[in-house]
Design a protein around this nucleic acid. Structure first.
Lengths: 331, 331
DNA sequence: TCCTCCGAATGAAACGTTTCATCACGGTTG
DNA sequence: CAACCGTGATGAAACGTTTCATTCGGAGGA
């Protein structure tokens, strides 16, 4: 069922059908109705391959995230999708699962489909495949990353500020012995948040090295937060508060506290990071540092579309958002 | 940069380049290397619109889920994706967010792209758009649903069996006053699980109407589970165990128990449904009914590809899996 | 009555592949 | 030595749109 069949059925030319599809205001109302009727009768569905081939440009964007199970990326994706559909673009959602080869495969497919632009949180700092894509002219925006060479737009959140926010809050509540329960400090996020925490402690006139106990878990998972906290409790560490590099770790610590009969926040205060949806519904609702996730997605998508629509006047931007503190019962 | 440029550069014909791309074994090794070199030098990327247009068929599948934030669908998607990439298909992941118009929009885009087949959990029982798609020849598989008219494949889980599993377990542990905390009973899942629960109670020689208290929350959310449980506690209901229609509700009930000083499972036993990743890491690790989610996805994808590859010999199947009980500390 | 003009419809070219019939060229066979 | 064969390469047609220059038909003005 092609445009040709529709044309025949409606008794008009192929060009007219195309016009009905793409510029309905250009065709006389009577003709238009005939054509629409024919389309409905035949159940015609436009072949977007043909359209795209001829037009040379598609109306879709690609988004490659590290982990679809992560609420952070779900919200980012929602923001991107909002803007995309708003502007009449389709979004191709891809999950690299932190694997470089999956990322490359997705980039390949997206480029073969000639997407208009790509939003990506790359698995590693520099990706040859990604550079190639950009060089060949597909606009690219980095999400939750910054490009040291500033040759594309990026949108990220200031993790140092987040750590500082956390530290200031805990100090203000009078806590002095603070545990920082984190994932691998090799992750920039984890390291930055510690930097911010130390900065806040120092700003209060205290010695970060004395106040802060760092516990590095091998990953940002609840079970590891549980184990870390149990270890801490068992060796009798004096801890008034725990700041966790993400909410999952914090929920693990919470479980450890509950299972050893400690009261939150009286015996130990708890502060998470990310403000995942479940933080508010934990056994003790969790205070957390919130990142403007949906807004990140929206902003990234807008930057991308801006570059797509005005490639010549466009100037790359590195946007950096500040996180917020969400107060609940755990602190 | 088209195949033509590559041909020119390599000093061969267009057809030969196409052969290198699609049937490399058919072209002499020397020529092949020349062509590959030209491709690399020019940074050629195949235009899949053109390929698809000419070939008439694409190598991609569509998956439309109700809610990407739901761990159930994340796992299903993972299963589908496994099989798809394994067979060299690309997967277009779409989220209807339980909105009919979004579902229709996605179906439209997928059909315009001429995907080979569609896996979908429809928002409502009968979708005209979906029927049209099927009629026009795109194979379709229902996920977590059954088609009453049996004109396509489907993969689902037996929710009655799940409820029965839960009921039998609670009865065996000696619990007699059981609360069933559920979402809207208009949802088939919620209703089926209740049916199963009642069946188990009856099978134990008890009266379901006397033993079971049903509390219907307006949605399957943790906060509503919390509120439901608080209400229950406040009116002093005698409850030994709560079976929840999903883990989120159960986690809400857990929070209510913790915040009112009740001990789980001593004062009240708690059983969830879905076995989401976080169930194991809750303040009290949650017993739950597990659905074989990844397996559902894999099976659905396999059925779909089977239908795509052998449309004439293919016979539609309605696959129904049984759920498992996962024992943890909450019961 | 003739010209001009304008809106609406037409027809053909082009987009980048794949496919298939055809061809060129050595080597083998009778 | 002619006929045949097989391996590789070629060239052109076709896929279903969009686009744009062209044509058509009638209304309005001179």
């Amino acid at each position: 069922m092609s445009i040709k069949d529709v044309a025949e059925r409606a008794g008009v030319s192929i060009g007219t059908v195309s016009n009905v599809l793409n510029r309905p205001e250009k065709v006389a109302v009577g003709t238009r109705e005939q054509v629409l009727a024919a389309i409905a009768e035949l159940g015609f569905v436009r072949n977007s391959s043909a359209a795209q081939l001829r037009a040379g440009t598609s109306r879709s964007l690609g988004l490659i995230v590290l982990d679809m199970a992560n609420p952070f990326f779900q919200d980012v994706a929602k923001g991107v999708e909002d803007v995309a559909t708003e502007q009449g673009y389709a979004l191709m959602l891809c999950n690299s699962d932190e694997q470089g080869d999956r990322e490359n495969r997705h980039l390949q497919v997206l480029e073969e489909q000639r997407v208009r632009g790509v939003l990506i949180t790359p698995v590693s700092v520099s990706s040859e495949r990604l550079d190639a894509l950009r060089t060949r002219g597909t606009p690219t925006v980095l999400v939750d990353r910054h490009d040291p060479r500033v040759d594309c737009c990026s949108v990220a959140v200031d993790d140092v500020a987040g750590g500082e926010l956390a530290g200031t809050h805990l100090i203000e509540r009078g806590h002095r012995d603070i545990a920082y329960v984190t994932g691998p400090l090799g992750l920039r996020q984890c390291a930055d948040r510690l930097t911010g925490l130390r900065r806040a402690v120092a700003a209060a006139g205290e010695d970060p090295d004395r106040l802060i106990t760092v516990i590095e878990a091998p990953a940002l998972k609840a079970r590891l937060g549980y184990e870390a906290a149990i270890g801490l409790f068992e060796r009798g560490a004096r801890i008034e508060a725990a700041f966790c590099a993400n909410d999952l770790l914090a929920l693990g610590v919470l479980r450890a506290a509950v299972s050893t009969g400690r009261r939150v926040p009286d015996d130990i205060a708890l502060l998470g990071y990310d403000d995942i949806e479940f933080a508010a519904d934990a056994a003790v609702p969790l205070s957390s540092i919130r990142q403007p996730t949906v807004h990140i997605g929206r902003t990234a998508a807008r930057l991308l579309l801006e570059e797509c629509d005005h490639p010549d006047t466009h100037a790359h931007q590195q946007v950096m958002f500040k996180p917020d503190l969400v107060l609940r019962e755990s602190t």
